[in-house]
Computed example of a mutant assay.
Amino acid sequence: MTALPERPEVAPEPGPRRYPPPRHPLELERLALAKVGRRVSVVVPARDEAPTVGQVVRALEGLRRGSRSVPALVDEVLVVDDGSQDATAQVAEEAGAQVVRSPRPQGKGGAMRLGVAASSGDLCVFLDADLREFDPLIVAGLLRPLLEDRGVWLVKPRYDRTLGGRSGEGGRVTELTAKPLLALLFPELLAVDQPLAGETAAPRAVLETLGLAEGYAVEVALLIDVASRAGLEALAEVDLGRRVHRNRPLAELRPQAEEVARTILQRAALAGRPLG
């Protein structure tokens, strides 16, 4: 196991470090040079995402291959097929990904653990497989804080989420479950715009030391654990503009909301946090 990143120094204004959006392909060259000596793995957990996983993987191929002028920013792309009933694995493989097949459905947290175990990167980037209008510069944005600041333990995105084409209406579990409970029990984490975002990045050492929780609560559990262990200054947020993905019906969101609520309440109980 590699060593954990250094504990960050307290900034003049404590809180997550914020980064602007990655806007120019030239940023890839600078980051690829900063990456020298480290490996980057992109892990995409997926279940029944055949319509979109292929375009996500194909968009990442340029970062993995590099070019004559720009070294590769990504060393490997792994899609974890979490018991799909459709052609997710085949589509991902044909697009160029290394496919890790789960012997049985693991849930999102379990799929992420399988991806980390099968990967070789010092830095891991996680992406959702249902992203539409995917821009590979997202990966550059998530990697930048880790490549430029050894004190960053976890990178999260800021973005506008849409629902049915309406700006700001997406992220229903985030807005109706996660944020109200965080406001009561971990109010400092309201500084994080998207606590449940699937687009995230962290050093392998952080993931192996703190672990990845079960199911859909994996992101908020990791966020709470990093903030508890290293403080808000170990978090970074990157502006990624707008997120367009497959919106799920409410019947599918209820189990997610229950898992998120249970995990926040359990973490609060372990930390001795009184209900605010």
Rank of each mutant, 00 (worst) to 15 (best):
residue 1 M to I: 13
residue 3 A to N: 14
residue 10 V to G: 10
residue 13 E to H: 12
residue 21 P to G: 15
residue 24 H to Y: 06
residue 24 H to Q: 11
residue 27 E to C: 02
residue 30 R to V: 09
residue 33 L to Q: 11
residue 34 A to K: 11
residue 36 V to L: 14
residue 38 R to A: 10
residue 39 R to A: 15
residue 40 V to G: 01
residue 40 V to R: 06
residue 44 V to H: 00
residue 44 V to A: 09
residue 52 T to Y: 12
residue 56 V to D: 02
residue 63 L to K: 02
residue 63 L to I: 04
residue 64 R to W: 01
residue 64 R to K: 15
residue 65 R to I: 09
residue 67 S to L: 08
residue 68 R to T: 15
residue 69 S to H: 09
residue 69 S to I: 08
residue 70 V to F: 14
residue 75 D to W: 11
residue 76 E to M: 00
residue 81 D to V: 09
residue 81 D to M: 12
residue 81 D to P: 10
residue 82 D to P: 01
residue 88 T to V: 04
residue 93 E to R: 14
residue 93 E to G: 07
residue 95 A to P: 02
residue 102 S to N: 12
residue 103 P to Q: 09
residue 110 G to L: 06
residue 111 A to L: 01
residue 112 M to N: 06
residue 113 R to V: 13
residue 116 V to M: 09
residue 117 A to P: 11
residue 119 S to M: 07
residue 121 G to N: 06
residue 123 L to T: 06
residue 124 C to H: 11
residue 125 V to Y: 00
residue 126 F to I: 04
residue 134 F to S: 01
residue 135 D to Q: 02
residue 136 P to S: 06
residue 138 I to T: 15
residue 140 A to K: 03
residue 144 R to D: 06
residue 145 P to S: 07
residue 147 L to F: 10
residue 148 E to W: 03
residue 151 G to P: 00
residue 153 W to Y: 02
residue 154 L to C: 00
residue 155 V to L: 03
residue 155 V to Y: 01
residue 158 R to L: 08
residue 165 G to T: 10
residue 165 G to K: 10
residue 166 R to Q: 15
residue 169 E to M: 13
residue 171 G to Q: 00
residue 172 R to E: 01
residue 174 T to E: 02
residue 177 T to L: 00
residue 181 L to D: 03
residue 182 L to F: 09
residue 183 A to V: 11
residue 187 P to K: 07
residue 188 E to H: 08
residue 193 D to M: 05
residue 194 Q to D: 02
residue 195 P to I: 13
residue 201 A to L: 04
residue 202 A to K: 04
residue 205 A to L: 10
residue 207 L to S: 15
residue 208 E to H: 12
residue 208 E to F: 11
residue 211 G to P: 09
residue 215 G to L: 13
residue 215 G to T: 07
residue 217 A to G: 09
residue 220 V to A: 08
residue 222 L to W: 03
residue 224 I to W: 07
residue 226 V to R: 08
residue 228 S to D: 15
residue 228 S to M: 06
residue 234 A to P: 05
residue 236 A to S: 03
residue 238 V to T: 02
residue 239 D to K: 04
residue 241 G to M: 02
residue 243 R to I: 09
residue 244 V to Q: 06
residue 248 R to C: 05
residue 254 R to V: 12
residue 263 T to S: 11
residue 264 I to N: 12
residue 267 R to L: 08
residue 273 R to S: 08
residue 276 G to P: 03
